[in-house]
Design a protein around this nucleic acid. Structure first.
Lengths: 120, 120
DNA sequence: ACATGAGTTGCAGAGTTCTTCAAGTTGTGT
DNA sequence: ACACAACTTGAAGAACTCTGCAACTCATGT
């Protein structure tokens, strides 16, 4: 066997580890979008969007096809949606648990996740 | 709530985007482990392991406590396990869809994703 | 043929993350 | 008190990712 599964998993999560890419997947799991439509809803440079789409294409999470002047993107694996939902649940759970300090449930309400995210 | 959820999600996935950290979470979701036990099962430098554990601690995905001479780690959010399972399913699904398919039916399926992972 | 809108690609500088080394802490046994 | 095992921390260089710019392709309208 060539590559350990845990390594493939890490690669996969890395692909999801970018705000724009999350945004794209969320939008695409509602419905297909042309690039210029994504552009309206996500505030980044066209070339940047294109780069992020390329990342998602490389991992086959999305596929694209031309339709006249536009390029339409769709998710190729519908289960991605479930994954995003699962993530959101863990995340909201974490926010009420995260003691920024140390291992001690019952301690002050954590802001570790919030704070870190806010810091960027 | 100052932080867009999609950004927190990206942060969260970034945390999962490392082979050692995936490995750690997999082991910990079976049962609690002392650091030296993790060390036996994951082949990395002690200090590196410690760094990765620190990353997981910071996001509150795991918690630690001392027990005599050892430090015991446990997952603090059991749902993480579901997430890892979901990822594995998407991943195995992807392997049969991936683009540059030098896949040979009969043997370990598609290598597009795997190969990419191997290339790092 | 030309101009224009829609996307993509290559690239370089800025910014992050990874890994390892050396040094430090904490608890146990002698 | 000392040595030793079990961990953690800080720091630094290598490796990688991100972003925006300029240049390019491709299809449509004039």
């Amino acid at each position: 066997m060539g590559v350990p599964l845990y390594q493939a998993k890490a690669e996969f999560f890395k692909t999801l580890g970018h705000p724009a890419r999350i945004r794209i997947l969320e939008l695409l799991s509602e419905r297909d979008h042309a690039v210029h439509e994504l552009l309206e809803k996500i505030a980044i440079e066209p070339s940047n969007l294109s780069q992020q789409l390329a990342v998602l294409r490389r991992t086959s999470l999305v596929v694209s096809h031309r339709h006249g002047g536009e390029v339409i993107y769709s998710v190729s694996v519908p289960e991605v949606r479930d994954l995003l939902v699962a993530a959101r649940q863990i995340l909201t759970g974490l926010i009420n648990i995260a003691p920024d300090t140390e291992a001690r449930p019952g301690e002050g309400p954590g802001t570790a996740v919030k704070a870190r995210a806010a810091a960027r």
